[in-house]
């Protein structure tokens, strides 16, 4: 099953992946990372198609896609 993971240490919560995602399954976490950013997370992994658009858009190269 396709899976996207965000490394909270890299994410700055810019939200560009949220807009890029065609399935709208990414949101900013309520948790914050060490830098104080609400980092992105996928809240419905089962809907992920591994289209990579979030990875392509992420300016902090924080996302890994598995398929």
């Amino acid at each position: 099953m396709p899976k996207m993971t965000v490394d909270p240490d890299y994410c700055k919560g810019c939200g560009l992946c949220i807009n890029a995602c065609p399935r709208k399954i990414i949101r900013l976490s309520e948790n914050i990372n060490a830098k104080g950013y609400n980092y992105a997370e996928c809240f419905e992994q089962e809907k992920c198609t591994a289209c990579k658009l979030c990875y392509i858009t992420c300016p902090d190269v924080a996302i890994t896609i598995e398929k």
Partner: peptide, 14 residues
């Protein structure tokens, strides 16, 4: 990790 501001495209270019 990059020092760029959130949403800056430098990271994409890198």
């Amino acid at each position: 990790p990059f020092h760029y501001c959130p949403g800056c495209m430098h990271g994409v270019a890198h």
